[in-house]
Design a protein around this nucleic acid. Sequence first.
DNA 1: CGTCTCCCTTCCACTGAGTGGAAGCGACGT
DNA 2: ACGTCGCTTCCACTCAGTGGAAGGGAGACG
Lengths: 253, 253
Amino acid sequence: MAGNVSTPGATVTSRVLALIGAFDEQHRSLSLSELAERAELPLPTAHRLVGELVQWGALSRRPSGEYVVGRRLWDVGLLAPVQTGLRQLASPYLHDLYGATLATVHLAVRDGAEVLYLDRLAGNASVPVVSAIGSRLPMHATGVGKVLLAHAPAEVQTVVLSDLRRITPYTITQPGTLRRQLGRVRREGYATTVEEMSLGACSVAVPVRVDEAVVAALGIVVPSLRNDRPRHVAALQVAAQGIGRALAASRAD
Amino acid sequence: MAGNVSTPGATVTSRVLALIGAFDEQHRSLSLSELAERAELPLPTAHRLVGELVQWGALSRRPSGEYVVGRRLWDVGLLAPVQTGLRQLASPYLHDLYGATLATVHLAVRDGAEVLYLDRLAGNASVPVVSAIGSRLPMHATGVGKVLLAHAPAEVQTVVLSDLRRITPYTITQPGTLRRQLGRVRREGYATTVEEMSLGACSVAVPVRVDEAVVAALGIVVPSLRNDRPRHVAALQVAAQGIGRALAASRAD
DNA sequence: CGTCTCCCTTCCACTGAGTGGAAGCGACGT
DNA sequence: ACGTCGCTTCCACTCAGTGGAAGGGAGACG
């Protein structure tokens, strides 16, 4: 699994997947040789496999000759259960929340020791943020992250607290400080961040609960927490409750 | 390539892709034997390949034993340019449009002789509709479909007009009638439908243009066209122009 | 409790699909 | 005209992939 793709033990399947996996946030389009290099495959092999992938629609070739992820993979990706349940159900509430706050809205779940962003609505006038749908960010520096961490199993908290990387000058890197904040999050029902992830961006986030269990987090990003905090928290909680109820109802399947 | 997957000439790659392609809207979760059958592969072969796919994260296995599309494919799918360009750019305008109309908002492109829905915002109070992100619908019975058809190449129009399936009692099935409507769409700059796709749902749609070329369509679904039509068309056109300008600007890459 | 059925998993001998070094091509630069 | 670089094609060798057959194991039925 951890091993090389081109050396013995490599199956055709693993080579195909290595090619698909060669694409990421920073590499949305790759030339044949880049692909071969990133997948650690000899060029002729990459060439043939990529040809098959293109024919099927998993990749597609730009006029420029570069390859990009194809529409068919996009189709299939949308069938993943990540989006099916939570995301689709939550969608209307996110829009309402956006309408009420006009701030960037995030829906996220915990993925191991990181936050996985499931959805994001950003308005034209919103604060620029680093998150993107499908991206992962550290838990200790985001609003949704703190919410999810506060309700995560103890062992996850331990892992995260033991590695608080500094991202901005305001990032919390003291385990004690963060641990105290997590307690407050549990008590008060919402988390905040102040420029801990990116300068000029503050956030407020609340948990989404189904029968007490925290299944996701809902957050907004605003330029400042000064005003409106109660209004924002209220709007978030209304939306979170709506999503929670919708989720619980849908479990009648 | 059109040929069978298990018969001679089939490559490992094509088998792997057949497995991935076995999932669709109606089949989001499949047992091993269903997978094998749908991919037309012998069971042991399917078993082995699926094992590799699961290990990589392209598929994942539910506690129930059924397989679903994995998170990693979701990740990769999101990198497809479908969403990167148009969808991301359009997102803020869609939200504004939703705020202005409180109706279900659709962003769609033409994919062959069908409409492919790229994005959809649905409020809580919105009319229920069949579309879903990533789904395809016929062009002759939807607002965005008519817009895209009106600006499609003649050969596409011919194909579509030759097969006007009835969906509701109000679906237009007369080629002549539809052809006349398409002319009006081009002249007036917007299309409408009245319960042609689903009862109780009407729609208004406009083209998104970049330098005169129609690259997408933007539509809303409402319970009735009686009132507000001019206001809706205006709101749609404002949003479509915004998206068009944003797209044109982004072509400075 | 035995037995039938259905679905999943493992085994392994045969073989043809996959491999990748090498050579060919075409575009661009000097 | 010649060198370089990235893509494409070729093809003989061989090892990865194949899938029939047999081995679990969970649940239904008599």
